[in-house]
Design a protein around this nucleic acid. Structure first.
Length: 178
DNA sequence: ACGAGGATGCTCT
DNA sequence: GAGCATCCTCGTC
């Protein structure tokens, strides 16, 4: 199964498959991280999802083709990035919550303004990769952010964090490091 | 180690 | 005008 077919699947299935894959940013000098933590968000049946109340100006890219990047501003300060999944118009996405630097760690350290805790959080991932609202609606199949095959990882599941609704579903997926 | 609180902007009610 | 899919610093223990 190729990447396009994978991303067209349900977010609950795509989320764990993203663990271990490489996310490459070609914004400036290329930087890469290995995806280590994600959360699946569904559509109108998921009250925690931005798509819960249907398509709006902010969440429009969530309803685009699978592989589209959905970027939104969080708490007025940070950016958060999602991989859109499922059939076009279904409004599903996978939030990128964490990663490990693979390439360009010095650039990442400079962008982050510190040398530790570089990508362990959704806002940090975006800062490390240079992702901003300008990236909203771009495709991970064409760039400037690109998803590349990696190593399959085992994972554990937990409830999603940082949300106040639909907290009972174990839709957070964390890679297990050997 | 852990918890409280502030920064900050935009969307939707 | 409320409510965020967050992060960082600083205060305690």
């Amino acid at each position: 199964m190729n990447l396009t077919e994978l991303l067209a699947g349900d977010s609950l299935k795509v989320a764990p498959a993203l663990l271990g894959m490489t996310l490459r940013s070609e914004i400036g000098t290329p930087v890469e991280i290995e995806i280590t933590e994600v959360e699946a968000y569904r559509s109108v049946e998921d009250s925690a999802s931005h798509a819960y109340r249907g398509r709006t100006a902010r969440n429009g890219s969530m309803f685009e083709a699978p592989g589209t990047l959905y970027v939104y501003r969080s708490y007025g300060i940070h950016w958060c990035a999602n991989v859109v999944t499922g059939p076009v118009g279904s409004g599903q996405a996978v939030l990128l919550r964490g990663g490990d630097p693979l390439l360009g760690i010095e650039i990442i350290r400079h962008r982050r303004g510190r040398t530790t805790d570089l990508c362990n959080g959704p806002g940090k991932v975006c800062q490390a990769l240079g992702i901003t609202g300008d990236c909203d609606g771009t495709s991970l199949l064409t760039g400037p952010l690109v998803l590349l095959a990696g190593v399959a990882r085992r994972h554990r599941t937990t409830p999603r964090i940082g949300i106040s609704k639909a907290t009972d579903h174990p839709w957070r997926f964390v890679a297990i490091r050997d």
